Computed example of a mutant assay.
Amino acid sequence: MTASAHDIDLKCSPTRPRLVDTERLIRWSTALAVICVATVAAIVSYRHAYHVVRSYGEDGVAARLVPLTVDGLIYASSMVMLHSARRGTPVPRLARWLLGLGIAATVAANAAHGLAHGLVGALVAAWPALALVGSYELLMLMVRNMGRVSAVIPDAVPEPILDTDPDIVPGPTRIALVVPQPSDPRDELEVQAESEFADELAIGRTPTIREIRSRLRVGQPRAQQARAYLSSLLADGEPA
């Protein structure tokens, strides 16, 4: 630093790194707790369902595999719903129905295991299944929301460090300002549509709703939104 310039050095505040570290700690500790609870609940729930299946005529490999079909149905349905949520597309009704069916089946099997000990026994036996389903859905919720936290973390506040040397004559100060870059106003669907139908736009043709639904795998409202956006590109004379 020179006396003539009398610069002000800006030191970045540790606020942002601390917030990022806190968010990461919360996210990973919660994920670890959910995984631990889900693992214990899955083992107990499987044992309950296995004994129920054996009690009603199945044995050997079949008795060991049938409980896995219930948990596998819950997993597959939840993953389909997660995929739809991350792509911004409507969740298939079949996935919702199968998820509900899988939850009902695993709860019923666990409750049947403890039914011989009365209502309280049935509730105690059904609890691992409820804990398993709840833990798994919490984990899926965290995965859906992952990546959105950084958007709400405030920017660091710079702390100026002033030169206190009395022999320096005050002069003009220079403060560096960080101007945030404007984000792309288009959503993911519009970007995907522009890329997917680049050839059609190049010849001045707007794809139909049916074509958009088929190639982008979206519902009617999202397809209409994409077609309106592509039509606006042609109207502005900006084909991809």
Rank of each mutant, 00 (worst) to 15 (best):
V152H: 13
L68T: 14
A129D: 03
G134P: 04
A202T: 13
A131W: 09
P172V: 04
P170Q: 02
S55M: 02
S55D: 06
G102M: 05
L94M: 12
M142Q: 11
E196G: 01
A156L: 10
V66I: 15
R64C: 02
A116T: 09
E58I: 01
V157K: 13
A198C: 09
S135W: 05
V152Q: 10
A85K: 06
V91M: 11
V120Y: 02
P154L: 05
A131S: 11
M142H: 06
A112N: 10
L73V: 14
P128E: 07
A104E: 06
W97Y: 08
S77P: 03
P172Q: 07
V91G: 00
I161A: 12
T69W: 06
A202F: 08
N145T: 12
G57C: 01
V107R: 00
S77L: 06
P128L: 09
I168V: 14
G72L: 11
G102E: 02
P90W: 05
L189S: 03
Y75Q: 10
E190L: 00
P166H: 05
R54I: 10
G147E: 09
G147N: 08
I103C: 12
R96Y: 11
V169F: 01
L82I: 12
L68G: 09
A76E: 03
G72T: 14
T164N: 07
L115T: 00
A176E: 15
Q181K: 04
A63T: 01
L68F: 13
P154W: 05
A105S: 15
D187N: 10
H117W: 11
V152M: 09
S150M: 08
A109F: 08
E159F: 12
L65C: 07
G57Y: 04
S135E: 00
P172A: 10
A116C: 11
V191N: 07
R96F: 10
A116G: 15
F197G: 03
V70S: 05
L65D: 08
L162M: 07
M81L: 11
L68S: 14
A122L: 02
G118V: 06
P185G: 13
H117R: 15
D167K: 06
A109C: 11
I175T: 15
P92G: 08
A125E: 01
I153G: 07
L139D: 13
P154K: 00
L177P: 05
L123H: 03
R54W: 09
L201D: 04
M79K: 14
D167C: 05
S150K: 10
Q181W: 02
R96A: 11
V133W: 02
P92C: 06
P172W: 04
L119W: 09
A85W: 06
A176R: 15
V107I: 12
T89M: 03
S78M: 07
V133A: 12
L139Y: 15
G72H: 13
A156Q: 07
G134F: 12
P154C: 04
V61Q: 08
M142G: 07
V143E: 12
R96E: 15
D184F: 04
S195K: 03
S78Y: 01
A122P: 01
Q192C: 02
A95R: 06
V70W: 05
A151F: 08
L101I: 06
A151E: 10
I168K: 08
Q192G: 13
S150Y: 04
I161G: 05
D184S: 00
A109W: 06
G134Y: 10
A193Q: 07
W127T: 08
A63E: 00
D71A: 14
L130R: 00
